[in-house]
């Protein structure tokens, strides 16, 4: 069902204009465990694509397949493909390290390194052997992440000395310092209080003018506030396992106001979570 919908949005599987990541994951396994099936999610350029659904529905797994973070998990394999600007991310001669340098990531828990605020942001720049004005790039990234004013006088302090919300914005600065074309965000606000969450959401809207964003969120309201497209995932427990799959994908407004699927309707009306 979901495959049909994805195809309807993206006929013949030919990447429509504006699709940065063409993600067609037919099956994702961890060892013998089928974690996700039939999830085709094209990520549109310059938009925020939100992934929503109950826990265990595979939304994070799908997100982490896009920049090959799942390669770190033993036993991960999948059927299907992920194309980034037309290139196969999982191609035989593609190094996952290179993929992750173009597709940045922000994680659920703020995870700054135990080094100074400055060094945290400069980390990716140094990895890429950036030779230009480091100070300028660090400042730019911190400004874009809306945290510059709070840290400009203590760049030498440890990144761990900041509050949770500040740490997460620092991690966003770290991810965008190298100007990747896509930023994946895996429940970036789940560990944060409402005020910090609001700041990060404003930041996402700000960032999408320059970057493409894929956002996993457990919070439906967050999807309505920031996402242009929304993908709703659910869990299929019919065959004894717990397999996540894409139920419906569409414009956020359509998903929340006029869902095509009964399951989507039940979920957004709060009948299950």
């Amino acid at each position: 069902m979901s495959a049909v919908l994805a195809n309807a949005l993206n006929p013949m599987g030919s990447p429509a204009a504006g699709v940065v990541i063409d993600c067609r994951l037919d099956k994702i396994f961890y060892g013998d465990f089928l974690a996700v099936r039939d999830s085709h999610v094209p990520i549109q350029k310059g938009q925020i694509t939100g992934f929503i659904g109950p826990s265990g529905c595979g939304k994070s797994t799908v997100l982490r397949s896009l920049n090959r973070m799942n390669d770190l998990v033993r036993g991960f394999r999948f059927d299907g493909h992920v194309h980034f600007h037309g290139q196969d991310v999982y191609g035989a001669n593609v190094d996952p390290v290179v993929v992750r340098r173009y597709i940045g990531m922000v994680f659920q828990q703020p995870n700054p390194f135990a080094m100074s605020i400055y060094d945290n942001v400069a980390f990716g720049l140094k990895l890429n052997r950036f030779k230009g004005d480091m100070d300028e790039r660090v400042e730019k990234a911190l400004r874009k992440a809306a945290i510059w004013d709070e840290v400009k006088d203590k760049l030498k302090n440890s990144g761990l000395s900041l509050s949770g919300g500040q740490q997460q914005r620092l991690c966003i600065a770290r991810a965008i310092a190298t100007e990747p074309s896509v930023v994946l965000m895996d429940e970036p606000c789940s560990a944060l209080d409402p005020i910090a969450t609001r700041k990060i959401e404003e930041l996402m809207l700000e960032l999408k003018t320059k970057y493409t964003i894929a956002l996993v969120t457990h919070n439906m309201q967050q999807a309505t506030r920031v996402a242009d497209k929304t993908a709703f995932f659910s869990v299929d427990i019919s065959k004894g396992g717990r397999t996540g799959y894409l139920v419906e994908l569409g414009d956020t407004r359509q998903i929340f106001e006029d869902p095509r699927e009964e399951l989507t309707k039940q979920y957004i009306s709060g009948e299950f979570s």
């Binding site: 973070m69 770190l72 940045g104 994680f107 135990a114 990716g124």
Partner: peptide
Amino acid sequence: PYRIKEAAYGLGATRWEAILRVMLPT
């Protein structure tokens, strides 16, 4: 913490870079 390792790999560090620049200092 695993999340620190993820952060290093997520930024596109090679295994050697992740170990030398992040894991060992941490």
